[in-house]
Design a protein around this nucleic acid. Structure first.
Length: 197
DNA sequence: CCCTGATTCGC
DNA sequence: GCGAATCAGG
């Protein structure tokens, strides 16, 4: 297989969408993820919002923009870090914690469903739930038979209905669910402290 | 172990 | 230009 315009176009598109090199390679067929990555680099479109790792920015290799005048902004710290509200860390929060989240919660748990390890009727972080909702839209919607060692086995819908499927997204290493579902499935039981935003 | 992207270097 | 091998990191 060679890099035809079509294939390159698809590559660009998918890469732009944040698809992983392996996924792109799978889609294209006839090439490995290495080939895809190699091509991506040759095309010059490398960095993007990667899912993990990579090089933060140890490099101070500034590419002087065409007209960008040098900006001697000497950052003492590499981390832009979020300006933490200068608040004298008193004891624990005075109890009631602000609940900005809109409770437009949709009942995602019908009834009599053999749900996986759910934190009882516990209160799952609204954020985690929101995350789940989002990814469920992109879920692979696999059937029981289609599940593999690496597909999220989180069930969605009512098993007694046609509207039932398994997430199917790539699982979190080790766990049986994808990242989002792991988030709601495994609650440390006491992780109620602040959120990192 | 699985996965990710980055780089190298012979072809 | 290509991409397997290898590397580095999660």
């Amino acid at each position: 297989m060679s890099w035809t315009d079509e294939r390159v176009e698809l590559l660009k598109k998918m890469w732009g969408e944040g698809q992983s090199a392996s996924q792109i390679a799978k889609e294209l067929g006839g090439v490995t993820r290495n080939a895809v990555i190699g091509k991506v680099h040759r095309l010059g479109l490398s960095n993007r919002t990667t899912t993990s790792s990579s090089k933060p920015a140890a490099e101070a290799k500034e590419k002087p923009a065409p007209k960008a005048p040098a900006k001697p902004k000497v950052q003492p710290k590499t981390e832009p870090a979020r300006p933490v509200t200068p608040e004298p860390v008193a004891a624990e929060a005075p109890a009631v914690e602000p609940k900005p989240s809109t409770h437009t919660r949709k009942q995602i748990i019908p009834a009599g469903q053999p749900l996986p390890p759910q934190p009882s009727a516990n209160e799952i972080p609204a954020e985690a739930l929101a995350k789940v909702n989002e990814i469920e839209k992109k879920a692979k919607r696999l059937t029981l038979m289609e599940l593999t060692e690496r597909t999220c086995k989180w069930p969605v819908g009512d098993p007694a209905t046609e509207d039932f499927w398994f997430c199917g997204l790539p699982v979190q290493q080790g766990k049986p669910y994808c990242e989002a579902h792991v988030g709601v499935a495994f609650q440390p039981m006491s992780s109620r402290r602040d959120r990192k935003r």
